[in-house]
Design a protein around this nucleic acid. Structure first.
Lengths: 112, 112
DNA sequence: CTATCATAGGTAGACTATCGACATATCACC
DNA sequence: GGTGATATGTCGATAGTCTACCTATGATAG
């Protein structure tokens, strides 16, 4: 678990969701996935390589994504990831669970 | 790290924030803190003992809470926790950081 | 020609939060 | 006497993230 005291990179447990969502835009290689997340988040979220590649391994092991070697737009070798049907289902489940928990946290912080 | 695939107990990294906020309501013992969080969250959040007591240790080590032995309303011995000034500051920091990261996640999930 | 930077993929080790299971004890209630 | 709620705590396993490393190529600056 990260510092998260202030100035955090990621909210633990949310990286898979962010990656899966990014893959719904189309097949991408790891580096591009990280860039996409960082850019859309206005650089609030930082996707470190040490988190990214284990996460991509994870997604494949669970059957939520597949990958194959290809070429990046800049001509370098790159592994392209594609979300699977079960990955899409997983994404939906994760988002609704995430929302549910966020609402619960909000109830505690506001009702109390 | 927990399963969090679906049906989660806690969003990792948020327990300290929830406990600190609960302590702003007044001094409470551990068991009551857990009950309060579970109840206000409509039992969505589950605070397991194996997470609760280490968290309370943590808060004390960081100087965010103090504790002393007392008696619970039911007459049993109980350790009462009190939030400190630095704990209140920490709570504010954690909430604003949390909000900042949530907004970032939302931007990724909606803009993309 | 060389150094540096961005791109691209990856691993190893440490850290740490959380969880499940266990242990202990008291009190209320049946 | 047994069970369930209250109350505190520990231990080991698991897992996600981070820091720091490594390799390699292409582009650009000097």
């Amino acid at each position: 678990m990260p510092k998260r005291s202030s100035r955090s990179d990621l909210l633990p447990g949310t990286l898979d969701m962010l990656v899966l969502h990014t893959l719904t835009l189309g097949s991408l290689h790891g580096y591009a996935i990280a860039q996409h997340i960082e850019k859309l988040s206005d650089d609030v979220l930082q996707v470190e390589q040490g988190s990214l590649y284990p996460a991509l391994e994870r997604l494949q092991k669970k059957g939520w994504a597949t990958s194959k070697w290809g070429q990046s737009p800049t001509g370098r070798r790159a592994r392209y990831y594609t979300i699977t049907a079960s990955g899409r289902k997983q994404l939906g489940d994760e988002i609704s669970d995430f929302d549910r928990v966020l609402l619960a946290i909000n109830r505690v912080l506001t009702r109390g």
